[in-house]
Design a protein around this nucleic acid. Sequence first.
DNA 1: GTGCCTGCTCACGGG
DNA 2: GAGCAGGCAC
Length: 740
Amino acid sequence: MSIYDTLNTEQREAVLHTDGPLLILAGAGSGKTRVLTHRIVYLIEEKGINPWNILAITFTNKAAGEMRERVDQLVGFGAESIWVSTFHSTCVRILRRYIDLIGYENNFTIYDSDDQKTLIKDVCKLCGIDTKVYKERSLISAISSAKNEMITPDEYEMNTAGDFAKMKIAKVYHEYEKQLRANNALDFDDLLLKTVQLFQTQPQVLDYYQERFRYIMVDEYQDTNTVQFKLVSLLAAKYQNLCVVGDDDQSIYKFRGANIRNILNFEKEFEHARVIKLEQNYRSTSTILDAANAVIRHNVGRKDKTLWTDNGEGDKIKLCQFDTGYDEAEFIVGDIREHVREGIASYNDHAILYRTNAQSRLFEEKFVAANVPYKIIGGVNFYARREIKDLLAYLKTIDNGQDDLAVRRIINVPKRGIGLTTINRVQESAQQRELGFYEALGGLDLIPGIGRGAAKLESFVALIEYFKGLVDSVSISDLMKEIIDKTGYVELLEAESNEEAQARIENIDELMSKIVAYEDGCEEEPPTLSGFLEEVALVADIDNLDETSDYVVLMTLHSAKGLEFPHVYLAGMEDGIFPSYMTIMADDPEEVEEERRLCYVGITRARENLTMTFARRRMIRGETQYNKMSRFLKEIPMNLLTSGQLIEDEKPEIPTQQAYRQAKASFRTKAFSAKPTQQFTVSKGASLSYDVGDRVRHMKFGDGMVTQITSGGRDYEVTVQFDQAGTKKMFASFAKLTKV
DNA sequence: GTGCCTGCTCACGGG
DNA sequence: GAGCAGGCAC
């Protein structure tokens, strides 16, 4: 009996098909990871392939680590020389070796989205672009999609077709690229794009990697974008041994460029590609699976497949409605506590999934109050915190003096009396002399008007040079200790002696232990500063999930991809939240389809129990919103559901005639009562051009009907039932509603 | 040059 | 509800 006997027919077929292109359409829970690991083992043990010749690309570092571990358990030796990593890590490794061939230095810096934003701001200032008209966010996303589609600034410029806005974007794109290059920095998209450009312009490098990676496997293929596809095609062009695994129904990253055509057209791109479908689900009960199938069936243009299972029917899916998000959180936390108390399950058997990170807050409150261990994945990234970014900027400055952003971040942190004026003078002088910012500090006497600032700048340079002198002789952790010591960073925080400063110090301690952990666990022979900074740049929040710790996990539906839990709660199942307001309002029906796929992902995370919850009203950014139950819930057949809380047919959200009268009456009594304080509001209210029952228009939410107007102190609180956006409560003076 | 206040904008997802 | 730019006083 061999390890391959445990696979089903299709799985075995996929494992044994080693040569030539192969597309595995693997439904949720169909054992694709098992197939991939067994395939690697088969290549090594049965086909005698050198592990060195195998490349496996996963979606997260965590998945990469797990895959290596599993292969390691199955093969005698050599697992460590298989190259298993994410697209981004793979590219960084290649670029660190060869990027000098396309005009960068090999110790380039990786810019995260914060750095990107800072740089774009600078660029806009430089190009005289008003960021009120052209939002940084949209500029970044325009540039990012261009890069994902491998459109260079020049090409972008040629395709503007006289479109004024596009010409502006082209200008920004040009300048942004110039600055990145000057800073010897790459953004996330560049990591992929530059690697493709490297391969396209340096045939000898491409040939080296084609020879090296004779067998290539790509997981989560449905979420690859155009440039990733190009990368894989280039690498696989010679030997054609490319195996991709994906599920078009789980494609949820269109917003960051994922191109679903990569999976739908695989057979066209790679002729003679073998296609194998894995449709048997080993994870969930049939009830859960039926619900998932029922939901996803509403999408058009998907590869036809139906998941089935011979797991039992299991429990029905619990559907619970609550008054507020607060009640929702309380119920879920209580439910989990009960499971644990009854010994049915442990904390880490439970996951709470939601659409947006902001939803985690209510849960956090309740978990703290209930003293239940929990872990929130995502939200504010550890490495995005100010103190961490500051200290890392020191490391970046020491590692790559060309990274102007890093230098400017720390030149006056902690405060050393170098103000904006001085910094701007240096900046100007640097530009004129075509030097980097830090370089320009070398010739202070050449900078006009620098005056008293010069001495301060000099001592800053001396400090950095001192650190640079340490790099080769001390470890990264010792270097960091020295930075903290010499700058007095922690000392200053200690002096503040408040809770916030204390939290920052704790974060710095955590950074120190992360550095030490890197040094201990580093695979590269001597741990390098660049190596550490790169690991920091490429970690995902989900990489920090530890399944062996006993805590309830909270995360977004996006983060949950690839995971599974016995008990899953899908919270906030409301139109406007999930599917999100933006996608409902979008003209493109594809947007709601992507949300539906996300729902499918969520449902299929559950092994035994699924609970879906929604609230009638909930506070969103300080505003009370009234949402209808999610359209996705209505797509689930009734016979699969049970109501944990009272559920009738959906409660009509539009108040009855009677309620109208009541609302109107209460408006009148309030408005015309004799209380002097309210007299004042009457005069205000008299200017309202609409009344209960009127149709009004809102700039963002569109048209709707006023259902209630109440006096809320200085202003009127108006409740409007919008045609598209649901019911919203807002202050009259802010809402700027017009009668239609 | 620094620190504080205010008002404004922005809130979907992430390597 | 939060973070940030810009204005202002010191």
